[in-house]
């Protein structure tokens, strides 16, 4: 079923560079990858005109592979006779300022899911109706689920990792001061990540 869908998308959207990824070792789910620029038109098609109408967006999950960021959209079809779900993927190669079009007017469920993706990974969604952090406080620095995230020791005067409660020598993911955080960020920017 996924093959037919891929053929349809390839014929309708030749610019989207539609690719089918099968699981490399045989177990797991397959996924369809498209380019970030063609996201909105493919989503409109999948919701309205495709024979498997994907009425529901279940979750948007962001993953940090160190060379690129990946945003996965889980779409589901809620027909009572046949239920189907698929994974739609988009790769973002720019790690410093990743940005993507928002699909919150296509599926209003995407509103909060995109806010969480921004909060955890830093992906900026354009034309989002209410763009701000959702889980972490508004003045939080950094994006926690990135692989190079280093937690801060102090937040607003409170000690997040007190010395007498932790074994700090082994904790490489905790920094001791704000200046050290800025140094680390400069280093990762310089590497072009």
């Amino acid at each position: 079923m996924l093959d037919e869908l891929v053929q349809e998308l390839k014929s309708k959207f030749p610019n989207a560079q539609v690719q089918l990824h099968n699981p490399p070792e045989g177990v797991g789910s397959s996924s369809i990858e498209i380019t970030p620029q063609s996201l909105r038109e493919v989503c409109f098609y999948l919701r309205d005109q495709s024979p498997l109408k994907f009425q529901v967006l279940q979750v948007i999950s962001g993953i940090d592979y160190v060379d690129y960021l990946e945003v996965c959209y889980m779409l589901a079809n809620f027909d009572l006779n046949r239920s189907y779900e698929m994974i739609l993927k988009v790769k973002l190669s720019d790690r410093v300022n990743p940005s993507l079009d928002s699909v919150s007017d296509i599926w209003p469920a995407a509103n909060w899911q995109e806010r969480e993706c921004y909060d955890m990974l830093g992906v900026v969604f354009k034309n989002h109706p209410d763009f701000r952090r959702i889980l972490c406080p508004d003045d939080w620095e950094g994006f926690p689920l990135r692989k190079d995230y280093v937690a801060a020791k102090f937040y607003n005067g409170m000690q997040v990792y007190p010395d007498h409660k932790m074994n700090l020598e082994e904790r490489s993911y905790i920094i001791h001061s704000k200046s050290q955080a800025e140094e680390l960020q400069k280093k990762s920017l310089a590497k072009g990540l």
Partner: peptide, 8 residues
């Protein structure tokens, strides 16, 4: 690993 949890 709780970056958002107060330790007590």
């Amino acid at each position: 690993h709780g970056y958002h949890v107060l330790k007590g």
